[in-house]
Design a protein around this nucleic acid. Sequence first.
DNA 1: GCTACTTCCTCTAGCGACTAGAGGAGCAAG
DNA 2: CTTGCTCCTCTAGTCGCTAGAGGAAGTAGC
Lengths: 140, 140
Amino acid sequence: MSQGVTIGQASKASGIKAPTIRYYEQIQLLPSPPRSEGNRRLYDADDLRRLRFIRHARELGFEIEPIRELLALAGDPSRPCLSADSIARSHLADIDHKIARLTALRTEVARMTECAQDSAANCRVIEVLGDHSGCLHDRH
Amino acid sequence: MSQGVTIGQASKASGIKAPTIRYYEQIQLLPSPPRSEGNRRLYDADDLRRLRFIRHARELGFEIEPIRELLALAGDPSRPCLSADSIARSHLADIDHKIARLTALRTEVARMTECAQDSAANCRVIEVLGDHSGCLHDRH
DNA sequence: GCTACTTCCTCTAGCGACTAGAGGAGCAAG
DNA sequence: CTTGCTCCTCTAGTCGCTAGAGGAAGTAGC
C-alpha cells in the first residue's frame, strides 16, 4: 500500500533536513526517487534506511565521499568488510590527527590566557600573537 | 630608504601565500598598501607585523572575524586586554568543545572497527552505521 | 636593445557540505 | 473557497582560501 512518504516525512524519520535530502539527490548520494502526480518525491523504506545510514555516518564525522563508498559496499555483499573497515580506520586516524592538533592548540591558547587577567596594561594575548617566539611549538 | 617590499617578499617573510595576502586585503583584514609605479603592492614593516600576527592567530585556529577584532585591539592601547582576553577564552572554549566531540566520536568509531578484522561475513562497520542503537550516545 | 624568465596584476570560478531565500504550485482542512 | 502548509525549482551565500586565465611589468643575460 505505502508507495512512499514525502520529503517532509522522510526528513522527520531520518533527522536530515529536506533541503539537505534534495542536495544529496543532486550530488547523487541518493537515487532520485519516483514522483507523485503532483511532482512530489516519494521515498520508500530502502531510501529511509539509506538516509539514516548517511545521517549516522555524517554524525560520526565521515565525509561524503567515504559515505558514498560505504553505501556502495553496504549494497554489495561480495567484498564489503575489508574496504569498509579500511575506510573506518582511515577516518579514525583522521580523528586522532585532529585531536592531537587541537590538544596542542589548546595548550598554546590556554598559556596565552592564563596570566592575562591580572593586568590590563601588558596584554599577553596580543603580545603572544604578535611574537611567535614564546610558543612551545614551531608549527602549530 | 625602504619604501616597502613586494608581495612575494611579504609572503616569504610572513609565511602567508601571496594570493592569500591579496584575499586579506580584499576582505579588508589588511589595509590596501600603496603601489609602486608599476602598480605593485608595497608593504612596510607594520604590514609585515600585521601579517605575522594574522598568520600566528590563524595557526592557533582563530577565525578571521576574531582576528579582525584582535587586530583592532592591538592597534588601540586604550582598552585592549579585557576584550582580547575574552576572545581568546571563547576560542579556548571552542577548542575544548571540539576536542570533547572528537573524543566521543573516536570512541564510537574505534568501537566500530575493533572487531571487524576477524570476520568478513558480518561487517561491523556497515552494520553499526545502519543501526544507531548500538551506539553509546544518542547524539554524537 | 632584445629575449627569456619570473613575478606581479585583475578577474572569475571552484572546494565541501550545506543553508537561505525567491517565486510559484499543489494539497488538505474548515 | 480560502487559508495555510508543504512542496517544487533555481540561484546565491557561507568560510577561507586555492587555482587558473590572460596579460603587464620587472630582471638577468647576451
